[in-house]
Design a protein around this nucleic acid. Structure first.
Length: 436
RNA sequence: GGCCCCAUCGUCUAUCGGCUAGGACACAAGCUUUUCAUGCUUGUUAGAGGAGUUCGACUCUCCUUGGGGCUGCCA
């Protein structure tokens, strides 16, 4: 145990962005690594943009990624009274003042401003970025209470961090400028200044902040597309941190054990979908068999198909698990095992079936396969081996594959036929031959 | 414009002054193979530019260039 306390403090104004959730991941990992506490605070002071739906989506993301938090969720709006008390304190001590201002949209009213020191240097040692300094004179006074009397982010954020006794603030790079201001508020209040760690942004191919225009940018989208939470978690972690050796696919325990905030990179990282996809495949391959089976059954059934009794599921799992990058691809990729009404892929038909002699070959194969004593992959293979006389089994194998599955890719052919069974295989060969 | 920050293969990165610059993704080739994958092997590709410090610099310092962030009664 330690007295380290970190928090993830999103504002629930929409979907959860991957850059944002990466901040959550780093906070969570830091807390778990150090034995500290990971707190969740909902910064819902922007009443116009904060929605209950967004809060719900946030919880779902956290749960999906197994980011569990300690203590009760802290809602910023419930602490408004405190925020304003603190503002009064600042007003009384001369650290704040009221002034009439005109906002961008032309509304005029009285706002409360925080008075920045006019000289000296504000500096801090950022855990990821190192020493950062800025002259106080370069920072303007800033508003902390709106003309409608509601507290603004800067004051609410700092007061809540004090109230939640946050020791380390790990957040996005875009907050470094705010940090100078926030440090001044902490000092004006006589509160200890927490340690800061600013995370670089995730950028697109142009080096600009990664946004929804660049592709999937929200956690929910990756979930819908069939990414495994562990894969997204692992990928996002690697975007800016590594264990110092060549390991990339890490278990949650390893991550917790190895994670060090000091080793997080300062530079922005480009989002590489290809690598995420690879990572997802790695996690699919590592899925426990029973989990993979459950997912497969679930997806097959939700596609309106059913797995018959006595179906050789272990054999299908053997074949499909290494070939699956996305669980979502599954109903389509295995549908022909569960329905005779499978689609024939046009290109495959063109390439493998629409050739002279294929029809006769298929008819001949029906004959030969009928005579197989035991319907097993090796037995079926020996039938074709005999036919090919060592000249390559292609001329038989390719047409069979397309005939019984409608496509060119998939499991090993003989394993596929074994799983399919004698009856279906023969029927499909006949049906396809008739078609030609 | 002002201020802050950053800079190794196309991308994510290793390197804490000794480097024949390593790994992963991607890409290419080969092996395995009935397809598609997996697996294995191999290959192409990097230290933005210029000064300085040093026996020695990708590593330290400075400048230039390039990139990003901030500059709200948003968070």
């Amino acid at each position: 145990m330690s007295d380290i306390r970190v928090r993830f403090a999103p504002s629930p104004t929409g979907k959860v962005h991957i850059g944002n959730i990466r901040a959550a991941i780093y906070n969570w990992l830091y807390a778990r690594h150090t034995g500290g506490k990971f707190l969740l605070r909902i910064e819902d002071t922007d009443l116009e943009r904060s929605t209950p739906e967004a809060i719900k989506a946030l919880f779902e993301c956290m749960e999906w990624l197994k980011l569990d938090w300690d203590e009760e969720v802290f809602y910023q709006t419930k602490n408004v009274k405190r925020h304003l008390e603190v503002v009064d304190q600042l007003l009384a001590s001369g650290h704040a003042y009221k002034v009439e201002k005109t906002s961008r949209d032309g509304k005029t009213g009285v706002v409360t401003m925080f008075r920045m020191p006019k000289e000296g240097v504000i500096e801090f040692d950022d855990i990821v970025k190192g020493h950062i300094a800025k002259k106080a004179e370069d920072i303007q006074d800033f508003a902390i209470v709106r003309s409608d009397g509601s507290p603004i982010f800067h004051i609410a954020n700092v007061v809540d961090d004090i109230d939640q006794r946050v020791t380390h603030i790990i957040r996005g790079d875009d907050h470094v400028e705010n940090t100078f201001k926030h440090i001044c508020i902490f000092r004006a209040l006589g509160a200890p200044v927490p340690k800061y760690g600013h995370l670089s942004m995730i950028v697109n191919q142009q080096g600009k902040p990664y946004s929804k225009r660049d592709g999937a940018a929200f956690v929910g989208e990756f979930r819908e597309q069939g990414y495994l939470p562990e894969a997204l978690f692992n990928y996002l972690l690697l975007l800016g941190w590594n264990p110092g050796d060549d390991r990339e696919v890490l278990s949650r325990d390893e991550m917790v054990k190895l994670f060090e905030l000091e080793k997080v990179h300062v530079t922005a990282a480009m989002f590489d979908l290809k690598k995420l996809q690879w990572m997802n495949g790695e996690y699919v391959k590592r899925l426990p068999r029973d989990v993979f089976e459950a997912e497969l059954r679930k997806r097959v059934e939700s596609a309106g198909l059913s797995v018959p009794d006595g179906f050789n599921m272990p054999a299908l799992i053997d074949q499909m698990q290494v070939r699956t990058k996305f669980l979502n691809d599954m109903p389509a990729n295995v549908a022909y095992f569960f329905t005779d009404d499978y689609p024939y892929d046009e290109k495959s038909v063109e390439k493998r079936l629409k050739k002279d002699g294929v029809k006769d070959t298929l008819i001949d194969l029906v004959q030969r396969f009928s005579g197989v004593a035991e319907w097993t992959a090796p037995a079926l293979e020996s039938v074709i081996k005999e036919l090919s006389q060592g000249n390559g089994m292609g001329p038989w194998v390719h047409p069979i594959r397309v005939a019984v599955s409608g496509r060119m890719d998939g499991p090993g052919l003989f394993e596929m036929l074994e799983i399919l069974g004698r009856e279906k295989t023969l029927a499909r060969l006949k049906k396809t031959a008739d078609m030609l």
